[in-house]
Every structure is written in C-alpha cells, then in structure tokens.
C-alpha cells in the first residue's frame, strides 16, 4: 500500500487505492514546476498583502546592505584617484629666488644626467605665473604684484625602479642638500598615506560588510520565524496529509528569497539616491582640484551582484529559521 509514488508508474486514473500520481514523469515534473511557481507567487502575494511591514523589513535589509556598498564605492573612488598618479610619482623641486634661468637650465641638465631620474622638466617662473593666472582665476589680481613671486621649478620623474618609498626618500634628501634648492615636494607621500588609509578602510569596510550581511541573515531569519508561527496550523495540516519537509519549507524559502530581492533593490535605490545627492558637492570638489575624478557608480553587473547576494542572504536566513523552527512543528 505504501508504495513509493516515484515507482507507481502510469496507472489508470480513478482506480481505487492508487492514490499516487499516475502521470508520466514529464507531467510530474510539470506539476512540480507549477507548484514552485505557485508557491513563489503566493509568497510574493503575502508580502504584497502586508505592504507596510514588508517594506519596513525590506528597508532594514536595504540599509544594512547600502552602507557597506556605499563605503566600498567611495573607497573605489579614492583608489582610482590615487592609482592614476601612483605610477608617475613626480618630485617638484623649487629653486631659490636668486637662481636665474640659465642656472636653472644647468641644474636641469645636471639632474637629467642622474641614473635615478628619467626625465626633468623645467617650469620657468614666468611660465608658472602664466598657468597660475589661468587656473586660479585670480587673473587681474595678479597684475597688482610688482614682480613674479614664483621660483623656477624642476619637475623630476624618477626612473621606474626608483619608484619606491625609501629610494625616493634618499633622492629627496640629496635634492634638498643642494644649495640652490629651497624646497622639495614629493607628491607620492600623501598618495602613499592615502593608499595606506584606503587599505585600512578597505579592511574595515569588508568587516562591516560581513557583519551587516550577518545582520541581514538574522533579520530575515527572524521575519521567517514569525511567518512560521503565524502559519503553524497550515504546517501541521500539510504534514498530516503527507507533505514532505521540502514541501513545507518551500513557501518560507521563497519568502526569504523575495525579502532578499526587495532589500537588494531598495539598497541599490538608496545608494543611487545618496550618490546623486553627493555628486554635486563632489563634482565641485573635483573641479577645485582641477581633477576629473567623480564618484564611482554601480555598474549593471554590480547591481546584479548586489541583488543576487541579497537574495542569497535571504534564502540563507530563511533556511536557518526553517531548520530551527519548522522541523520542530509536528502534528500532535
């Protein structure tokens, strides 16, 4: 009597005692998929029927996800800024006021001969004033100056193999010891610091992301736990009429999946809104630095990853809740 339904094959419909599906495997599969579709739709409908609580749960998930995502994007922005400069660390050497153009030419020749240096560019003081006039917007105010306050400047590009902190440091010291040199400015320093800070932040954001991911799993787990409680009778009846564990779990796993999807989409939306709001001041800042950098945005692939990860978290949370609470519900 208790024959395995999978072995019952094709018996004529309506025969007594043949309570198993009598359809060929194809029809079985279709009805299995139809049940999946129905369960998925039913889970979505239940969320739609309680829009406010669904939205609140979705927002909690979204905020937990949007925070690390936004931080990661900002970090990525910082890293693109620094990486553009990284390879061409340049050293600005400001020469003393009394150094005239010919002497400056001589120094340029001299430093260009150094093995550590691949290129030296001389920015004459008039040239420097000209570009300052153009870029600072101070134009006419500069006409009030009696003479040019800017020194001649040499811009040194070190050889690639000297692009390394300690070698650069030694080079800077040698440059500083020159009697005609007033000041040496190494662009790399702040970039290195920025990179170091970015590395620290990256780890911080990763840790935060993991923690908040866990929070999403727990939030969804708790939501599913409540859903299980409220559908207790239904679970008991399903188990009494022969519903398998998988059958009973399915609606809750779909609910978790949909909460994840909702949270992921809302998180994307939150990040977009926040970045749209930030973009105006950021653009102005970039403009002031004469830089073309802008905030990194989420690509289509990033959005898919975000929503996918969120759905995974949702499924995981639901699975944990189901494992803990659903299997304990047995008809008594």
């Amino acid at each position: 009597m208790a024959a395995d339904p999978r072995h019952s094959g094709t018996q004529s419909a309506g025969r007594r005692g043949a309570a198993r599906p009598r359809s060929p495997w194809r029809e079985q599969l279709e009805s299995y998929l139809a049940h999946h579709r129905r369960t998925a739709r039913d889970a979505a409908m239940r969320m739609r029927d309680a829009p406010l609580s669904s939205l609140m749960t979705g927002l909690v998930i979204a905020i937990a996800l949007a925070l690390p995502v936004a931080l990661m994007l900002m970090l990525a922005t910082v890293q693109t800024v620094s990486s553009g400069w990284d390879e061409a660390a340049r050293i600005n050497v400001y020469l003393a006021d009394e150094v005239d153009l010919t002497q400056a030419e001589g120094l340029r020749e001299h430093w260009a001969g150094e093995s550590a240096i691949s290129e030296v560019e001389l920015i004459a003081r008039d040239e420097a004033l000209g570009s300052f006039r153009e870029r600072s917007g101070l134009g006419e105010a500069l006409d009030f100056l009696e003479d040019n306050p800017l020194p001649h400047t040499l811009v040194l590009t070190p050889e690639a193999r000297y692009q390394e902190a300690s070698a650069l440091q030694r080079l800077v010291e040698r440059l500083e010891s020159d009697e005609y040199v007033v000041r040496v400015q190494l662009d790399l320093e702040w970039l290195q610091r920025l990179n170091a800070i970015a590395d620290v932040l990256e780890r911080g954001v990763t840790a935060l992301g993991l923690l908040l991911g866990l929070a999403v799993v727990l939030v969804i787990g708790n939501t599913i736990r409540l859903a299980i409680e409220s559908r207790r009778r239904e679970i008991v009846v399903a188990k009494l009429v022969g519903g398998t564990e998988a059958f009973v779990r399915r609606p809750f796993l779909y609910t978790g999946l949909w909460y994840g999807a909702l949270g992921g989409v809302l998180a994307w939306w939150l990040v977009e809104v926040a970045f749209w709001w930030l973009s105006v001041p950021v653009d102005r800042l970039a403009d002031l630095y004469g830089s073309a950098f802008g905030l990194q945005r989420l690509s289509f692939g990033d959005v898919l990853t975000l929503v996918g990860a969120s759905m995974l978290f949702g499924w995981l949370g639901a699975w944990l809740a189901v494992k803990r609470h659903l299997d304990a519900i047995e008809p008594r």
Binding site: P5, A19, R20, P21, S23, E27, Q28, E30, S31, Y32, A34, H35, R233, E234, V236, V237, A238, L240, V241, G242, G243, T244, F247
Partner: peptide
C-alpha cells in the same frame, strides 16, 4: 483541522497539492 484562510475547495485540495497532482 480545517484552515480558515482559504476556501473549502483549497482545503480539500491540500492532499493533492502535496502529492503534485496536475
């Protein structure tokens, strides 16, 4: 052990749904 969140039809259909009847 009837469920009051669905119709009479859906209550009776439960055992069939569980076994995957088309």
């Amino acid at each position: 052990q009837l469920l009051f969140d669905r119709t009479v039809f859906d209550n009776v259909a439960m055992p069939l749904e569980v076994t995957g009847v088309p």
